[in-house]
Design a protein around this nucleic acid. Structure first.
Lengths: 115, 115
DNA sequence: AAGGTATGTAAGATGTTGCTTAAATACTTA
DNA sequence: TAAGTATTTAAGCAACATCTTACATACCTT
């Protein structure tokens, strides 16, 4: 997971992931989308993404076709799922906290305590 | 988002996040959970997490209490949600692939072919 | 085989990260 | 106010990341 998260922490690599999410794209075509950086730089990003298990490569004659490997993000996605319950779950939790807080106040009142 | 993802890419910081997920924890108590690294190192990690919007700090006399700020992960979590369809969607896709494969086998059987 | 095209690898400059130890800050208690 | 406690800030260093240019590899076409 560590490798996947480090890979995804780079904005260029995230952009590459988006490019190859829906199908194979050749290295050159990917590089063409990043006029700001050299082709070797893109190649290195691709290597990192492959090593992290986020991309699959396939040779097609001269070219190399990259595509996303969806399971590569699974572990990292799980981390986010446990750490960020999502907006619905967050609402529910907030409601329960509120409920407990009210119950606590009630207990305190009965005991004659003050905050 | 970039800052949040970079922050979360470090395993120590992820562990800190887990520690403060369910409530406030003092800096010292956090540091005590990481015998391998010095207290200043932990303090620096905490600063990075706060800067990234992932943690809230509160002073309580001498101590500083940290706690998670759940919304800090929202953007990054969204990225994962769009990039990783999730286990259910993936199961569904797998089932459909399987179905197509079986249909293919059946066709082959009727044709008298073998794999 | 020779030349062209697509791509990766190597080497090196430069900036960033994550740690350490030492010192500073800020609150609390005697 | 002095000493103690909790924590951050500063300075410096080794390791790592990211880019560049130059070169190497491998396939395709003629």
């Amino acid at each position: 997971m560590d490798e996947a998260l480090r890979a995804v922490a780079d904005p260029t690599r995230r952009a590459i992931l988006v490019l190859v999410r829906d199908g194979e794209v050749a290295a050159g075509d990917i590089a063409a989308r990043f006029p700001g950086i050299s082709r070797p730089a893109v190649s290195q990003h691709l290597r990192i993404l492959v090593t992290a298990g986020l991309l699959d490569v396939r040779r097609d004659g001269n070219r190399r076709l990259y595509r996303m490997r969806p399971d590569g993000l699974a572990e990292a996605a799980m981390f986010f799922q446990t750490m960020w319950p999502g907006p619905l779950r967050r609402l529910k939790d907030a409601a329960e906290r509120e409920e407990r807080a009210l119950a606590g106040e009630e207990t305190a009142r009965i005991r004659g305590e003050s905050s």
